[in-house]
Computed example of a mutant assay.
Amino acid sequence: MQFGFSTNAFREYQLEDAIEAIADAGYDGVELLLDEPHLYPPTATDADHERVADALERHGIAVSNGNAFMLTAIEDFHHPSYIEPDADYRRKRIDYTLAALETAADLGLPYISIEPGGPIPEAKSREWAIDTFVDSLQEVVPKAREVGVDLLVEPEPDLLIETGDEFLALLERVDADCVKCNFDAGHFYCVGADPVDLIDPLWEHTEHYHLEDIPADRTHEHTQLGDGAMDIDAFLGALADRGYEGFVTVELYPYEETPVETAREAMAYLEERGWA
């Protein structure tokens, strides 16, 4: 398998500098944050795309994923979501995703990761939220098909889709081959699952994996590899046994004060354990 590191830990850095630092740390790939301050699709120009492509080529590194989950350019990580009660506000997330698909296609990316609906609004039912998320996805699926970029829904604690079963139930409603899973091992661990147990049932739907460690109390806190309680060796071993050759991206966005050191320490952990 190949390892990437996400630039969402490098929000205090220019994107080109983040790409260089991640390549220098020994990673095969870099996850591009499709948000400010890096590459925000609604305002990114062709020149911006060329600048990123040049940096990737110059440093000999691939793109592991296009991260279209966070949306701090408008509000925060989770808002606007696909299930906002205000239709105009919800439209901002939909339009952003359409732009992200265009950017990904321009850069030759096969997929982008997106949020799993969002937080269920107060006074709204889960049924309403699922219906609204499905409707929102149906608005972006045609563009995904047109440009050949898959939409990887990323289950996350405290959002609409948290578990493997909920993701599979969503697929039954959406019924679109371009909607797949961004499998975040730590997120599944936070909601009480063993990520190893979910590899097989989600295998055919998963194109990319996120990895971080998580504290023993399963708090949703992205933690440096080896500093939490997850059995990372078991997880990576299960992927290896399955013959996985794609990307596992280390996502440690809380470490934005020390991203270079954090990326290098995570790679040192992977190398010491024989994975990289």
Rank of each mutant, 00 (worst) to 15 (best):
D88S: 12
L101E: 09
K92R: 15
D86F: 03
D86A: 05
R93H: 08
I83N: 09
D86H: 06
D86Q: 07
I112P: 15
P85F: 00
D106N: 13
G108R: 04
D95K: 04
A104D: 10
E115V: 15
Y89R: 15
D95Y: 04
L98D: 09
L101T: 08
D106V: 08
D88C: 04
T97P: 11
D95F: 01
G108P: 00
D86S: 06
E102D: 15
A104I: 04
G117W: 00
Y89G: 08
L107S: 04
S113K: 10
L107W: 05
P110W: 06
Y89F: 14
D95W: 03
A87F: 01
I83T: 09
L98R: 13
T103G: 14
L98I: 07
G118R: 04
R91E: 15
I112F: 12
A105K: 11
Y96I: 00
A99T: 02
I112V: 14
P110D: 08
P116W: 00
A104S: 09
T103I: 10
P116S: 01
A99V: 02
A105E: 12
E84I: 00
E102N: 13
I114W: 05
R90Q: 08
R90T: 04
A105I: 02
A87M: 01
I83K: 10
Y96C: 03
I112S: 13
P85A: 02
K92P: 10
A104N: 10
G118D: 03
A100E: 14
L107R: 06
A105M: 07
L109K: 07
I112A: 12
D106Y: 12
P116F: 00
Y111H: 15
A100H: 09
A104W: 06
I83Y: 10
A99P: 12
E102T: 11
L101H: 09
E84T: 00
D106C: 12
S113Y: 07
P85G: 02
D86P: 14
D88T: 06
P110N: 08
Y111A: 13
P110Q: 05
I94H: 10
P85K: 01
D86V: 02
Y89E: 13
P85D: 01
G108K: 02
L107M: 11
G108N: 03
G117H: 01
T97C: 03
P116Q: 01
A99K: 07
Y96D: 03
L109F: 03
D86W: 04
L107C: 05
D106F: 08
R91Q: 13
Y96P: 09
L107Y: 04
I83D: 07
E102H: 12
I114M: 09
S113T: 15
L101A: 11
E84F: 01
E102A: 13
D86E: 10
G108W: 01
R93M: 06
G108Y: 01
I94G: 06
S113H: 11
D106S: 14
D86Y: 04
R90M: 01
K92A: 09
I94C: 06
R91T: 09
S113M: 13
A99Q: 06
D88G: 15
I112M: 12
D86T: 03
T103C: 15
G108D: 03
Y89L: 13
G117V: 00
T103Y: 12
I112T: 11
I83H: 12
P85Y: 02
Y111L: 09
K92F: 05
L101W: 06
T103V: 14
R91D: 14
Y96G: 04
E115K: 14
R90F: 03
